[in-house]
């Protein structure tokens, strides 16, 4: 099975690599380089004049209370989304792993939300939780709970966390289920014979054996919460009320597209890029080695 295929000459492998390299260069490397360059400039919107200002944009961004607020929001948001999405997915996967009737149907249903576009999922949540047109929103108000995420920052944060986590549960579910199914039955049976109850079996046998999956999913979920939740926030709260749900990625959009402040927006996206690079290094260098396989 480990027969190696070796190309004769260099032309053909180069040719085969070319499309991928071209895509990477045009859609990843080039825009990233442009962003880095732009982050060093002060420019009017139309690009009629630009001045090289060195790291001034970065200094401005880091000193800006609005950016720090967005960073704090992002920390709360990303950790809540990751914990909620992982916790719920793990629970559902453990339940689905049991021998139950209609297993396939149940699993398919759980995987479905992943196919829903972020903006669509946000609209679905809006129809549930809008204070005056939402099913649950109206019910909450009728029951005496003052629910208005358009004015209450904590409620708005809660809503975008739930909507974002809901979408990610399916993805986590698939991986957890696969992870659970790859745990040898013999190990579990041995533990059972030793007298370990189901809960104990879960925490001492299943969970440690799932740790590579969990760790992988944690990184994926953090990256998701950081970068792919723009649609949900844009459709639900637009970063409001006040700036209660403005995350770093949303602020990049607002400053660049709405406010046409290109230098600052570029500096912010470069900071995010540095963050992702750091996260990736941590994943490969340190943590992955300590995970119990």
């Amino acid at each position: 099975m480990d027969r190696k295929v070796i190309f004769k000459g260099r032309a053909l492998p180069m040719l085969l690599l070319l499309p991928q390299l071209a895509v990477t260069l045009v859609f990843f490397i080039w825009p990233a380089a442009m962003a880095v360059w732009q982050s060093l400039l002060q420019e009017d919107a139309f690009g009629l004049s630009s001045t090289f200002v060195g790291l001034e944009n970065f200094a401005d961004v880091l000193a800006d209370p609005a950016w720090r607020g967005a960073a704090a929001n992002t920390a709360v948001f990303a950790s809540s989304v990751a914990v909620l999405a992982l916790g719920v997915a793990l629970f559902l996967a453990v339940q689905a792993d049991k021998a139950i009737r209609g297993q396939r149907f149940y699993r398919t249903m759980l995987i479905w939300p992943y196919a829903v576009a972020p903006a669509i999922s946000a609209v679905l949540w809006l129809f549930l939780f809008h204070p005056s047109i939402g099913l649950i929103g109206r019910a909450l108000n009728a029951a005496g709970v003052l629910w208005d995420y358009q004015l209450n920052g904590s409620q708005a944060m809660l809503l975008v966390v739930i909507a974002s986590a809901w979408k990610q549960v399916s993805y986590n579910f698939i991986f957890f289920l696969a992870g659970l199914q790859s745990i040898p039955k013999s190990v579990l049976e041995a533990a059972a014979i030793d007298g370990a109850r189901p809960l104990r079996r879960f925490w001492t046998v299943v969970f440690p054996l799932l740790s590579p999956t969990t760790f992988f999913l944690l990184v994926v979920n953090l990256v998701y919460a950081f970068f792919d939740t723009f649609g949900v926030i844009h459709a639900l709260t637009k970063g409001g009320p006040g700036k209660a749900t403005e995350t770093l990625i949303y602020k990049v959009y607002v400053d660049g597209v709405d406010n046409l402040n290109l230098g600052s927006s570029a500096a912010q996206s470069v900071l995010l890029m540095v963050f992702v690079i750091a996260l990736t290094v941590v994943q490969f260098r340190f943590v992955e080695r300590r995970v119990h396989y």
Binding site: F28, W30, P31, A35, Y253, L262, S265, A266
Partner: peptide, 12 residues
């Protein structure tokens, strides 16, 4: 994230 930079938008 790289996909989200303005340069990409400009290119598009």
């Amino acid at each position: 994230m790289l996909r989200r930079t303005l340069a990409a938008a400009a290119a598009a």
